[in-house]
Write a protein that binds this DNA or RNA. Sequence first.
RNA 1: GGGCAAGUAGCUCAAUGGCGGAGCAAUCGGUUUACAUCCGAUAGGUUACAGGUUCGAGUCCUGUCUUGCCCACCA
Length: 898
Amino acid sequence: MEELPKAYTPHEVEDRLYKDWEDKGYFRGSPDPSKKPYSIVIPPPNITGILHMGHALNNTIQDILIRFKRMQGFQTEWMPGTDHAGIATQNVVERKLAKDKVKRQDLGREKFVEEVWKWREEYGSTIIRQLKKLGCSCDWERARFTMDEGLSEAVLEVFTRLYEKGLIYRGNYIINWCPRCQTALSDEESEHRDVEGMLYHIKYPVKGSDKDDFVVVATTRPETMLGDVAIAVNPKDERYKDLKGKTVILPILDRELKIIFDSMVDLEFGTGALKVTPAHDPVDFCLGQRYGLEQINIMNGDATINSAGGEYEGMDRFEAREAILEDLKARGLFIKSEPHRHAVGHCYRCHTMVEPRLSPQWFVKMKPLAEPAIAAVKSQEIKFYPQRWTKVYLDWMENIRDWCISRQIWWGHRIPVYYCKKCQSNEDQKPGVRGQGSENGEGIIVSKTRPEKCPKCGGTDIEQDPDVLDTWFSSWLWPFSTFGWPKDTPELKYFYPTDSLVTAQEIIFFWVARMIMAGLEFRKAIPFKSVYIHGTVRDITGTKMSKSLGNVIDPLDMIEKYGTDALRFSIISITSQGQDVFLAEGKFELGRNFANKLWNASRFILMNMKPEDCRGDLCVLFKAVNLSLPDRWILSRFYSTLGLVTKCLDEFKFNEAVNAIYEFLWHEFCDWYIEISKPHLKETTTQLILYKVLEKSLRMLHPVMPFVTEEIWQKLPRDKDSMAGSIMISRWPHIQKDMISIKVEQEMGKVIDVITAIRNIRSAWDIVPGAQINILVNTHDISDSKLLGDNSEMIKRLARIADMKVGKMSKPKGAAASVIGTLEVYVPLEGLIDLEKERLRLKKEEDRVSGAIKSMEARLGDNNFTSKAPKDVVEKQRVQLIELTLQLEKLRANLKTI
RNA sequence: GGGCAAGUAGCUCAAUGGCGGAGCAAUCGGUUUACAUCCGAUAGGUUACAGGUUCGAGUCCUGUCUUGCCCACCA
């Protein structure tokens, strides 16, 4: 047989095998009515993305599922693609232009968008190449991009349908505004972070009273007082009873402010008096609506003060805050400031503090969409794994708020809304700028294509809304838009609904929830059946990995250093279901060592086999030949493991699956079976079993470690024509239940215990592993005699035995002893052992056993236990007690004869 | 303020309510027919704390403490 190199070298094989798989079209999924479909859509990475550990974990899991299902005979489709990532990408390109001192405004919209496309051509597929390095078996020929033609068509279709249904509206509300990106954000895009702020107490003089009569308001954002139109107090508040019918004077601007009495005001907080700024705070906005107050917007898009701010015009919001505080102090209207910790929204893209700001935007009415999406999860039509995310999802869905979908940037799907200027002539209109239009749809034309003229007045002075849609407005359609919707394609029919969605908790609201709503609204069917939420990858101290903290472990570095399979194996192995992953570089050694172990075991088997030895049939062999205990044992262990692994993969318990394979291959197959087989290597039976178990194990491991398994598998002698051209399209091994035997596993367990006991004695008495010793085994029943007699050869080998006697016998003088259940192992070592030490060794064991007996006797003596515990538990205890008592007797006898 | 998760060996994590295990690190000993990316052995524990349920609790319940995360209009 061909000899393998001494160590597995991933780099030589990975790119070669990947290219081969791709060239042969193994990743391709096409509708095939003769097979059941299994599909996954990738969470599309941003085109600005570079592969990080989160991606590595996320995509490894998906690849495991897809490869597993492909081998199980499903027609699989893993739909890949990328997201245009509106704000993120625009920021990247703007930063690039800034290096040449160019602003996007200098280029103009059209040129700038061209620049972004160019950038995308050049860098947008970096992450795709990296996913290939990770071994992902995506159907790359179908790869989609959220801005490509088909998906853009889907966006237009959805926008117009929702508008016609009355679920999209334009409105002037308080939204989260990022002054750096200069765009509106959705509530989800504004991340709350605790900030050490200040609460400032400011006097607002009461009109017409003497100087000492004033109301003290408390605020964290004093600069917004420029937009104050009222102050509000709770009607129950005794402190402010006298204010009825009065007004106060806004300091500095000297505007007269109403006093509102509303129960919305918290008596406990601050001074109990609230300044009302309807254009810059959601609560104030609400009050403003309720009492018909004026809305004064005091800021420009970049958070500088506008003309409404009088002398502060042009100052940045924080500059203005300081200036206003100074002026208040000068006028004696400032009382105090106190530290105040509170949560403040930050832009999820650039982390700038968000400014709540009144602004006309487009919204999606979410309640009607949420209802069926809630029902689908409540009815378990869609299941979350781990289950606890169900509650998180439902809580959010049941309190859902309307979705602000317009963004004041250039990169994205332009909103398919046109304004007829003539129809809008009565409105506040500034061409091309926010502010025109109205909620009742006056002058608004929603159309997939640019209308020639206004359908209402025939006017041709028509302008498209300058805004683009939120990035997630295209990604929420991903599970069906990628398959060709709105066209009714065969792929859509066959692969939709998809099966599993694998993602991180961060995007449950952004993406998962919205996909469910979109799927039900536009396809009248759920987008996927299972949602598997995996943990976040953190560093070893538990902090989230991020570039700015410098604690990232780059998956590509790890691939370079340890190999792709090692990366995949290790990260899966240490990720228990849905829990966060704590990563340190050393963890990848686990996978690398395992790949190497497998490689060497294969190398050993191939070195020792003849090609014709692989031709037999395992089932025939199993029935026809009286196999030895280790043979029957390894087959039983293999099929038990296969059963467990299959079950775990179906239940998204990836680490359990992976650890079961590891345990089996390394500690059972290599450490015991191969070692035991070494004297029998020339025998056909042994060779066939070694070969078959290896070959099937490779298939069982392939979804997790695709490269090393393929590389070895390719080097195996072909046993039948049925062995496909690649392990990745071979069949998942069939579970032979009749080969699983608990009795066999127990018997072998006893043999292993005997060998371990002998090793233990050798180690305790410093007998060098090479030196051979004599062993006497005192057995009391025939089955034990048979068990050890038949297999003495393997014990001989593994325990370095010169001579072994089994039967009824007594202990020779000066022997070390060990008691395993009912049998005793003696190692005659007269003169070599320290008798006092041996006594201590046995005494320790005696203490352990007698302790166990005591507690067991106590339990069995307790009427409560024997009457209330299940019968089988009690019976088990009784049997154990008898065994332990026998063992104790023997231990004591041995102690006496030292 | 509400919710979720976690707290077990030095570290990272396992353990259908039935004698608390593994990997790494440590200690000792090896190189046998693949593998030093190896093999064998050893040691290491008041399961965060306090109660409760139960014949029996790391596991279930209540409370406390610590940590992490998510959500939230106390300005």
